[in-house]
Computed example of a mutant assay.
Amino acid sequence: MRDATSNPSGDISATSGDGPLAVEATAWLVRLASGEATSEDAAALQRWRSQSSAHRQAFAEAKLLWEVLGPAGDMVRERAKVSAVQALVATNVIASRRNVKLGRRAFLGGALAASVAAVGYVGARPPFRLWPSPGELTADYRTGTGERQTIALADDVSIVMNTQTSIDIRSGAAGTRAFELIDGEAAVTAKASFEVFAANGRVTASSARFSLRRDQASVCVTCLEGAVRVNRHDQLVEVLTGQQVVYDDNGFRPVAPIDVAVASAWERGQLIFRHEPLARVVQELNRYRPGKIVLLNDRLGERDVVATFQLSRIDEAVVNLAQTFSARLRRLPGGMVLLS
């Protein structure tokens, strides 16, 4: 494998995800999932992995991607089977066999996008947000990865939708204007009475600037100016300027102070982190770029980050983080990036 110093393109990735070791590692996974793997195969795999740390790393990365991809990509996996076995036979990793029955869990890193159209897997939350959920598909407004959109409901109410956000316009109590946050994050500037619904909760404001972020059943409400009231079932919480509250199926968490400039940075096209663990930073970056950044080192994920990134140059953030922490960065097809 190459490191940053031997890569003439200047990219600090090592070998690409479709290199020889990656193909062989994928082929091993195909064989192990076939239901016909033998003890000789297991011993041969151990010999293959023991050849070098690069072999072990390739197998670990292929296994990780196999697991996180989940059920997406059935058609692509079918296409992967023949090439994977051919790779093993061609490199003498395993002996050629007739009528090899392959499992359905083969992985082909080069065609993540094609897997979206290949499966009818729309009943659950999509892996890596590769396609919209049913609720998002029927939303009145929706933004894609890395997109922002401003909606003026009237002269006195405006909404800024952040990346991967879906909302439905509806009526609130007594005919007041309102919307439901289906998923994602939105900032609201209201100069008149206004309501927002999200995950069995309701936010009410009459003259305020606030934001909501919904991650499935968890909702975070941040008051940027003025005051808002948050109702959930029979509980009511008031949130003032510079405060934030989170609620989920377990109820409200305590109201906490926040830095307004940090919380609203995305509206200005920035991401600001002040002493956040790298794992949390990576999780946030994944909202704004296609594919997925995967941390392979738990200790690396604990490193402290103080940084400001421009959303218009989000990929530079990944490179900067890798350089700052002397981490190994490897790019794979489909926008996948491995940090270790």
Results as ranks from 00 to 15, higher is better:
Leu45Gly: 01
Ile272Asn: 05
Arg177Leu: 09
Leu296Thr: 01
Ser39Lys: 08
Glu316His: 07
Glu267Ala: 14
Glu225Ser: 13
Arg170His: 05
Arg202Glu: 04
Ala95Asp: 11
Ala154Thr: 15
Arg303Cys: 14
Ser158Trp: 09
Arg232Phe: 02
Gly184Asp: 07
Ser96Tyr: 10
Gly17Trp: 14
Leu29Thr: 01
Arg79Met: 07
Asp168Arg: 08
Glu225Phe: 08
Gln244Leu: 13
Pro254Tyr: 07
Gly291Asn: 10
Glu78Val: 10
Gly335Leu: 12
Arg313Ile: 02
Arg328Asn: 06
Leu311Gly: 06
Asp259Tyr: 05
Val221Gln: 00
Ala317Glu: 02
Asp155Arg: 13
Leu224Ala: 15
Val85Lys: 02
Arg142Gln: 05
Arg268Asn: 13
Gly144Ala: 02
Arg287Leu: 06
Ser16Thr: 15
Thr91Ser: 13
Ser34His: 04
Val203Tyr: 06
Gly144Leu: 06
Ser158Asn: 13
Val68Arg: 04
Leu21Arg: 13
Met336Lys: 07
Thr308Ile: 09
Trp66Pro: 00
Glu316Ile: 02
Ser34Leu: 01
Asn162His: 07
Gln46Leu: 11
Asp249Gln: 08
Trp48Gln: 06
Ile151Leu: 08
Pro8Leu: 14
Ser264Met: 09
Ser6Leu: 12
Gly17Ser: 08
Arg328Tyr: 06
Ser193Gly: 04
Asp156Asn: 15
Leu32Thr: 03
Gly269Gln: 09
Leu271Gly: 00
Ile258Leu: 12
Ser340Lys: 13
Thr143Asp: 00
Thr241Val: 05
Asn92Gln: 13
Cys220Lys: 13
Thr241Met: 04
Val76Lys: 00
Phe194Glu: 11
Ser211Lys: 09
Val188Lys: 12
Gly226Arg: 10
Val100Gln: 10
Arg313Cys: 00
Val116Pro: 07
Ala152Glu: 14
Gly123Pro: 02
His233Val: 05
Ile272Arg: 11
Leu21Tyr: 11
Pro71Phe: 00
Asp140Ile: 01
Gly226Phe: 03
Trp28Asp: 01
Leu321Trp: 05
Ile272Gln: 05
Ala37Trp: 06
Pro20Ala: 15
Lys101Cys: 08
Arg268Phe: 06
Glu24Ile: 06
Leu224Lys: 08
Val337Arg: 08
Leu64Lys: 13
Ala187Phe: 15
Asp315Leu: 05
Val23Gly: 04
Ser34Glu: 06
Gly184Val: 11
Leu311Asn: 12
Phe59Thr: 03
Gln235Thr: 04
Val260Met: 02
Gly144Val: 04
Gly334Pro: 03
Met336Cys: 04
Ala25Ser: 04
Ser166Asn: 03
Leu181Gly: 05
Glu78Gly: 09
Ile151Glu: 03
Asn250His: 13
Ala307Gln: 10
Leu88Asp: 01
Leu45Cys: 01
Glu195Val: 07
Arg129Phe: 10
Ala60Pro: 01
Asp304Met: 10
Val230Met: 04
